[in-house]
Design a protein around this nucleic acid. Sequence first.
DNA 1: ACCGGGCTGGCAAGCGGTTGCCAAATGTTG
DNA 2: CAACATTTGGCAACCGCTTGCCAGCCCGGT
Lengths: 356, 356
Amino acid sequence: MAEGRAPTIYDVAKAAGVAASTVSRAFARPGRVNAETAERIRQVAAELGYRANPLARALPTGRTSMIAFVVADVSNPFHNEIIRGAQTACADAGYSMLLADAQESGLRERELLDRAMSTVEGIVLATSRMPDSAIRMIAKQKPTVVLNRVLGDVPSVVTDNPRGMRRAAEHLGELGHERITYVAGPEASWADGTRWRALREAGLELELQVRRVGPFEPTVAGGARAAAELGRHPTSAVIAYNDLMAIGLIQALTTRGVRVPHEVSVVGFDNIFVSELVTPALTTVAAPLNAMGHTAVGNLLAMIRGATPRTAEPVTLPSLLVVRGSTAHRRRNRTSPAFGTTNAAGSARSTDAGSR
Amino acid sequence: MAEGRAPTIYDVAKAAGVAASTVSRAFARPGRVNAETAERIRQVAAELGYRANPLARALPTGRTSMIAFVVADVSNPFHNEIIRGAQTACADAGYSMLLADAQESGLRERELLDRAMSTVEGIVLATSRMPDSAIRMIAKQKPTVVLNRVLGDVPSVVTDNPRGMRRAAEHLGELGHERITYVAGPEASWADGTRWRALREAGLELELQVRRVGPFEPTVAGGARAAAELGRHPTSAVIAYNDLMAIGLIQALTTRGVRVPHEVSVVGFDNIFVSELVTPALTTVAAPLNAMGHTAVGNLLAMIRGATPRTAEPVTLPSLLVVRGSTAHRRRNRTSPAFGTTNAAGSARSTDAGSR
DNA sequence: ACCGGGCTGGCAAGCGGTTGCCAAATGTTG
DNA sequence: CAACATTTGGCAACCGCTTGCCAGCCCGGT
């Protein structure tokens, strides 16, 4: 074996006095080779420090032991735990994870996928920004799982949005709130549609008035911007599309002198890391973030191993309402003063501040 | 060309009436092939939807167009912007990024690298948990850049910790604080050592008393734990190893009835996303997170392209003190009541813990 | 003693590109 | 017009591993 180069099966074969194919089989086809021979080969390989070259293996077989994990925005804390869960599942299965950041652009997402596609065995699309048609195209070529989205014919993993929203509405109802505003996220978001629909249904059953403002970007800035909109038609309770928006909303409200939760109760979605760090701590519908990443990858790997996609039903993970400090009993006596006194100039300023 | 399979250079070659090698060169060796021929080949390739198979290319050349990016903990928000920056740099260069999460374990880190090593052209070790020797071993095999750590013979990217710490100390000094406690992070952290040293030097020059407690985990929980320790020997100003710890510290302090910044000023490090969201907003030494990821990858790619490693000096990125709400003028009249009840027993412990 | 079948191991043909080397064609020079 | 240089395209040998097929061997059954 030449020094300076990684040993190959040929080096091992020569050292062990067998053919290269036997070495290959000793590792990949247990039983196909005599136990003693296999053992000897493994010995020799260990001494030489042999490590199979995954590229060379992948070429004839297509098994690269890699999957692609695509997120809309790596810098969004929403993904932190999801990625962690995905990574764990990958590593445990001996797979590596190619991370692609679409930077909120469906176009960029396609380009990245174009590049990675031929290298990976499967794809997880977390919060994809691509249209359904593009996703179906992808799914036709490689095993694919979408996260946080439901799409006929493509296996998916989602959280129980209806149930979570229902719990949030119940919670607010119990606190005496009668009118709830939903601050909407991006229209391209599947979750947004689902959540709003669920709130409307819950509103009907629980006899709560619901309405919707938006859409806004799913960020702190977007939430801040929503505050202005909200001021035009105040309600004592608000449910935001996600935690980031809820936080931005609370900040903007506080700046305007509206106290949360005393005058307005705010509920978020996702229970990202920061939501328990802000003041007041956020009441939110918790998603099992880590589990989402984990099961998405788990299901993908199962598909890769040949399991039937069970494309019929999306896998639904439970949501849980986490009650913290941003919700409180409705003060029945009067409308919030800040909302009453809002003038046009002030609201414009805060709107500008939110833009970026 | 067989249907259902991706077209290869052979398919293109046949369709264009040339040899496969010519097709290969038409793409990879501009100039080596007649311009007209090359153009025709490109035409045909486009019609057929030909895409070079990166695996097949990688086998003979070793050029996989992938790098590995290893972080100690993906779920730590510190990495968010860093990863974003790294991803951008990768994508712009036509590279894909393998993300590995060490989950705070040097052992796991080695395993992941073991697996990925042969697949990538280079490695970025961000906040590695491996010992220097292990890193040197890695760097010997593949182009490697370490982030947030300085290591003889291995190219690195760091922030200007001394300057950042100096600014923090000056800021606290200007506010009238005379004694500063440094809440230390993990001992394995290179940054921790650097920051503490810088604080000691700054203390000397600015005539401030400094001391150190810890180490603690670099998390919110770790920061909270530090609060207890801190109580044994109160100072009016604290600098924490990172923002997460600072936040945990503030929370714990607040819970104990110590008001921040009125009774204690707290400074963090890194300026992660959340630091402006908490209450009070955190005064912190901002690191150019995005740029860190970006330049680390940029330098790595340069090395891969054959640039001399310039291993001599680490690349130092500027730090900037961001003053927000967690620092204020020292109240000169009296010691904080909560701190007043401290007894001596604990202080010896904290001194010991700080050694090394 | 002969035959069919199960074990084992080797041979060789890929997988899809890359690239050194050669040869034909074309251009240049004396 | 001969001798030589330059372009341009093809041939074939890899890169390291997988796998279908074949052959030798040993075995039991008859």
